[in-house]
Design a protein around this nucleic acid. Sequence first.
DNA 1: ACTCTTCCATCAGACGGG
DNA 2: CCCCGTCC
DNA 3: ACATGATGGAAGAG
Length: 481
Amino acid sequence: MKTGITLVGLIDCLRKYTCKCFGIIFFLLSPQPRLNKARLRFSSASPSSPPSNLTFYTRFRQHLGLQQLSLLFTRWVLKVTTLSEQILHLRSLANTRYPGLFHLLQENTQDSIKDGEIKQHFGRKIAIDASMSIYSFLIAVRSEGQQLTSETGETTSHLMGLFYRTLRMVDNGIKPLYVFDGRPPTLKSGELAKRSARKAEATAAHAEAKEVGTAEEVEKFSRRTVRVTKEINDECKRLLTCMGIPYVEAPCEAEAQCAALAKAGKVYAAASDDMDTLCFETPILLKKLMLSEMKKEPVQEIYLDRAMQELGFTRDQFIDLCILLGCDYCDTIPKVGPTTALKLIREHKSIENVLSHLGPKYAVPKKWPYQDARELFKNPLITDPDECEFKWEAPDIDKLVAFLVGEKGFNEDRVRAGAVKLSKNLKGNTQARVNDFFKPVPKTAEELAGLKRKSEEKAAERKKKVKAEKAEKGKGKKGKR
DNA sequence: ACTCTTCCATCAGACGGG
DNA sequence: CCCCGTCC
DNA sequence: ACATGATGGAAGAG
């Protein structure tokens, strides 16, 4: 707005710092190019004038808007760099994504989402995507921008987070089962993009040599997106072993494996904040499991069968709905949001029918591999749940102390206190299960009343908010007029 | 006026003492 | 309770 | 020679 930057100026600047441009381009091509301070600092670690580019970029984005800017960069990239169309296409595949499924369920169904407390899950086995948690620990557990480290400078953020979170779960009687990603999740966009690229993009034969180079770049690119290194994963596994907590290694996506375990009845539910897990047919999904105790928010429990029942959908229709809403595997149709998607599927029952009845207003993406996505949801790569063996054992306190205190410099008292909690809860196991068996569904009147009150309060709050806003708006308008 | 979509900004863990 | 510093 | 995703609010389009 204020700054009078021109396109020419921008391009000049970019030419000047060619290497830095890659960073910016990747930002732009990433599904959600957002910048925050931590990241800025992080990526500007190199000495030569990085801030100029980034601030430049930010200002410019405000000026132009994202789409034009990214178009501009795309064109520029094509001209100047060796990045080929395939990478661009790969990124564009994973473009926008609506978070709408949860809201949609919230508003269109009554019983599929239930708020509860963490205590209700006492004694239950719950599968958790380990990599997701570890990733968030690595990002969030920091002090003055730096991760926590042992004396030798090794990162310990992940151990810290994993240790205490697991402790809290065990303390609440939950028996966690961690599921580790097999191959990094790039299989999603990577494989799909490659596949569809191979299929349709034979037209790019004009530069075969280029394509060879590109394939390498694509691989490089996907390798880079590995979030949690093998070392970190191994340390976490070691910690879990010391704690007596079991884990499972998924061949591919942990989410899918969690769902399979839940479906087979090996665990009670899958805990994740990602609604995609529902598409893998987990009967129950727990959302915000760990947030609850800290912030006094309810644990959200989502039942797949009730959701489908209330929407009147079969599993296939439900998956199609999710694809329309936007999943990890393919793009959405522009102008089709949650509401429209629901309407369309209700009317036409399947994506094929939707496509054949779709008005000209809606431009379906040229490459829209919805069938592949559907296939991935229906038949994900998993190991048979029956072959997964896991049990909860007593912690090996000596090893635990040797590891955390000896190698990583944790406070010994805290670790020992934690270990005591672990073994104490293990003892209560048999009883816990019996209790759980006795009163699974019937809640006490108090609990019900409490929950009701809570939800009513929330609803009231929302209404009040809306009302207040409307009132304000009204006032403003009246005042103006 | 209303509904739905797109754009933008912000933040992410766990614990304990005041 | 909320705010804020500390964990390693 | 690297770099994210969920969410809520506000503005925009039809």
